[in-house]
Design a protein around this nucleic acid. Structure first.
Length: 299
DNA sequence: ATGTCAGGCGCAGCCTGA
């Protein structure tokens, strides 16, 4: 199962980039942020194109700002808009949607920016993250939290820590709030796979920041342990940030092995359980041989 | 060095947000 997250910075503007990207990368589940469209408008713009590609969509949008979505072609059950108990500013904003896709509870989140440390919006950001943590703690064992967290987890996730000194995204309280979210049992699957690499997901449009690779890593794929154990690849699709009319964020992609209980396909015997040889009567101890047909494996 | 985008309003160019 291929899962991706992408802050598209207006889905209306990004249609010419999003559709070819879906066709090229063929993700099974896509978490989108900053769609900036009400749900009916998004359906009008993109509904047919998504359906033609086999995607169902869970939407939580609003007309001007914010807006999140989950696209899935491995099922989309129990859709919940927002994070229960999360604060608004002052009214609830369209910053989260969750659904069960292919046996995993998937959250697409757009964490508040925070604007300026100490501002009401900054307090809002911290409180919103606390509500998200509580939600994850109550959730099932198999969870993915994907999205734009608007926090660089560590100095290594910023091209130059000094460039952002005193600004949001790098302050200690924000990082502590993210650490508390992770302490709900979430793994940062890209950083765990690339512990020493320069990995960014966002580059400011201005001043050739992308060309100079002066960015930040603020878009994360976070997985609970059973899901993290299935990760076979996790990477940033920098190609999608290049060329004409890109978002200022690149997608993050994670490939998962089939779940051990076979939610998405046939059960494959583990290597430690060799197939019984024809003509023998050897059976696993826990399996009882049928009595009426004689020894198993013989015809 | 405040450099680029996007939405809204409303039809030019300013305001807000990131």
């Amino acid at each position: 199962m291929r899962v991706a997250t992408w802050n598209v910075n207006s889905i209306r503007q990004r249609v010419p980039r999003l559709l070819p990207w879906l066709d090229e990368r063929r993700p099974d589940v896509v978490c989108l942020q900053e769609t900036k469209l009400a749900d009916d408008a998004l359906t009008a713009v993109l509904g047919g194109e998504l359906a033609a590609r086999g995607y169902e969509a869970a939407l939580n949008g609003e007309p001007r700002w914010n807006g999140v979505a989950i696209l899935s072609r491995v099922g989309l059950a129990d859709v919940v808009k927002g994070v229960p108990g999360a604060p608004g500013f002052p009214h609830e904003e369209a910053r989260a949607v969750s659904a069960t896709c292919g046996g995993v509870r998937v959250h697409s989140v757009y964490v508040p920016n925070g604007r300026t440390p100490g501002s009401p919006h900054y307090r809002y950001k911290l409180d919103w993250l606390a509500a998200l943590r509580e939600q994850v703690e109550q959730g099932p064992a198999d969870v993915l939290v994907c999205g734009d967290v608007n926090i660089a987890p560590a100095d290594a996730d910023v091209f130059d820590p000094d460039a952002y000194a005193g600004q949001t995204h790098v302050t200690e309280p924000e990082r502590a709030a993210l650490t508390r979210l992770l302490s709900a049992g979430l793994h940062d699957v890209v950083r765990e796979r690339w512990p020493d690499s320069r990995v960014f997901t966002y580059w400011d449009y201005r001043a050739g920041m992308f060309h100079k690779d002066l960015g930040m890593r603020i878009d994360l794929v976070l997985a609970t342990a059973p899901v993290a154990a299935r990760v076979r690849a996790a990477w940033v699709d920098r190609h999608a940030r290049k060329g004409t009319g890109p978002s200022d964020h690149a997608p993050v992609i994670a490939d998962l092995d089939t779940a051990p209980d076979g939610d998405l396909g046939p059960v494959v015997p583990p290597p430690s359980a060799p197939a019984p040889k024809r003509g023998t009567t050897t059976l696993p101890q826990s399996v009882s041989a049928p009595r009426s047909d004689g020894p198993a494996g013989r015809r």
